[in-house]
């Protein structure tokens, strides 16, 4: 079970949109049921990161984070999405 932290400004708006798309991609790649996504606010990443395998963020994360962070704006724009999906799948394999 991979634990994925999804961070955005409010833990509500953009992370909800990314959550839907990320779940769809992961399900299509055969990871259905093998991951759990938690949405949070950007301010909470610092404290929560230690408990997660990796983090996908829709905004810049600064400071010390204890798990790998992937910038997920491509999930919103669709531009360069292949690269970001590849990064996510890389983390899923670890």
């Amino acid at each position: 079970m991979k634990k994925i932290l999804l961070a955005c400004a409010s833990g509500i708006a953009t992370s909800t949109a990314v959550n839907h798309k990320l779940s769809k991609v992961l399900d299509e790649k055969g990871y259905k049921g093998q991951y759990r996504i938690t949405q949070c606010k950007v301010q909470e990443v610092f404290a929560q990161s230690a408990n997660y395998d990796f983090c996908v963020a829709t905004t810049k994360i600064s400071g010390e984070v204890k798990c790998p962070v992937i910038l997920g704006i491509a999930f919103l724009t669709g531009i360069g999405l292949d690269k970001v999906v590849a990064q996510v799948l890389e983390e899923m394999k670890k």
């Binding site: 955005c8 963020a57 905004t59 994360i61 919103l76």
Partner: peptide
Amino acid sequence: YIGLDSAIGIGNPTTL
């Protein structure tokens, strides 16, 4: 440009 929710800019430490 692609127009997005300004939420993506919140992570800037000065903004917060």
